[in-house]
């Protein structure tokens, strides 16, 4: 059941991105920025939470889920440390993803080189 829900929720979020790509002239970078920011806002308003409860990885793996984690982290930070938590919380909540991306990004760049497209 988890898998069906994750598939549908995750797939639908991607379809929204695809429609934006095909129908507007928005570049992928702009779509990613909008998705993350939207995730932060929906997360802060408590709208994304039910989606995460229902779709699990289907809601956390796409980029709005990254925004949701940022917002959730910022709230947790404020709860624990007060105002400074607004600054520490977001990055703390997403530190694993960011550090992994930087570290593996560097590692892969050392190991591999780009190949000519066919």
């Amino acid at each position: 059941m988890d898998y069906i829900r994750a598939f549908i929720v995750g797939g639908l979020i991607c379809v929204i991105g695809q429609i934006l790509m095909d129908k507007t002239k928005l570049t992928p970078a702009r779509i990613l920025v909008s998705f993350v920011t939207l995730g932060v806002i929906l997360g802060a308003l408590g709208i994304y939470e039910p989606l995460v409860k229902y779709g699990k990885a289907g809601a956390t793996v796409p980029l709005p889920g990254f925004g949701y984690s940022l917002a959730k982290g910022a709230f947790k930070g404020v709860d624990e440390y007060g105002l400074i938590g607004a600054f520490t919380g977001g990055v703390t909540g997403t530190a694993a993803g960011i550090a992994a991306a930087v570290f593996f990004g560097y590692l892969m760049a050392i190991i591999f080189s780009p190949k000519m497209k066919k």
């Binding site: 994750a6 995750g10 797939g11």
Partner: peptide, 16 residues
């Protein structure tokens, strides 16, 4: 959209 849905969904299933 079908491609995006299926492959996006599958990636999320790997996450699941």
């Amino acid at each position: 959209c079908i491609f995006a849905f299926v492959i996006g969904g599958l990636i999320c299933d790997v996450g699941q």
